[in-house]
């Protein structure tokens, strides 16, 4: 079953075409990467999938359900979670509270039971707290639960953002440059971490990344974009040997 499918998705900002006729298919359980030079339209692609932008043309499907017209919170509530290129944590809250926020949409108790702290609301809060603590434990942040989120070191902030994305038990996880600012050792750890959460949470992962070593190591398939256009798609081996890619992407760096 296709988890995600974009059909002829185009996103224009005025005269600029950030994403041009994008056709991506991701199957259940895959780890798929999207790579390309700066300004290639990768983040814009995530923003279209998650409903921040409505595509100028084309359609997006999630398990066959059309996402066009849905707001970001609706997209999140049907099982797509994401992280951001420039980390976005709730800065006045603790690590635990950051994770708890992502359980809000899934609540069964109403406003009044929550204000009055009625038993059903308290019970739900307790369950959510346990769940959040369990996730924090799994990503290795349990000991920081009561820290201010922004007082964590950079690498752990990234982990926290992933923990927050995972607590709602999504089916698809979108990671926007999770290794940005990490040294080679940290990015190796991140690769293991992504494998680990993929198996533990039975999720499909779609990620944008610049660190080629990481991409080659973890991806089942890779899409390469340039100026909004997809110029190649294939396994890491195929991409490594694709002359177009070498010219457009790797050539630029090396």
């Amino acid at each position: 079953m296709n988890v995600l499918e974009t059909r002829h998705v185009t996103m224009r900002f005025g005269g600029l075409t950030a994403v041009d006729d994008l056709n991506i298919v991701i199957e259940e359980g895959e780890i798929v990467s999207l790579i390309g030079p700066n300004g290639a339209g990768k983040t814009t692609c995530f923003n279209v999938i998650t409903g921040i932008y409505q595509p100028t043309e084309g359609e997006v499907f999630f398990y066959g359900e059309k996402l066009n017209g849905k707001r970001p919170d609706q997209v999140a509530s049907i099982g797509i979670s994401r992280t951001f290129q420039n980390i976005r944590l709730f800065k006045t809250m603790t690590v635990l509270e950051n994770v708890l926020c992502a359980t809000h949409f899934n609540r069964h108790s109403g406003l009044f039971s929550n204000i009055l702290h009625l038993p059903n609301a308290l019970k739900e809060e307790g369950l959510n707290r346990d769940k959040a603590l369990k996730i924090l434990d799994e990503v290795g942040l349990a000991q920081y639960a009561d820290w201010k989120a922004t007082s964590l070191p950079y690498g752990l902030q990234r982990r926290l953002e992933i923990a927050r994305a995972l607590v709602s038990e999504p089916k698809l996880l979108l990671l926007d440059e999770p290794a940005a600012g990490m040294n080679p050792k940290e990015s190796d750890e991140l690769a293991d971490f992504i494998f680990e959460i993929k198996d533990k949470f039975h999720i499909t992962v779609f990620l944008i990344e610049h660190h080629m070593k990481l991409v080659m190591k973890i991806s089942d398939r890779i899409y390469v974009t340039q100026y909004g256009k997809t110029i190649a798609m294939g396994t890491p081996e195929e991409i490594r040997n694709n002359p177009l890619v070498i010219q457009a992407y790797l050539g630029e760096e090396g």
Partner: peptide, 13 residues
């Protein structure tokens, strides 16, 4: 208040 974009992305309308 802290981050509307992130709030929306985790399902808060």
């Amino acid at each position: 208040r802290d981050d509307p974009v992130a709030a929306e992305a985790i399902g808060i309308p």
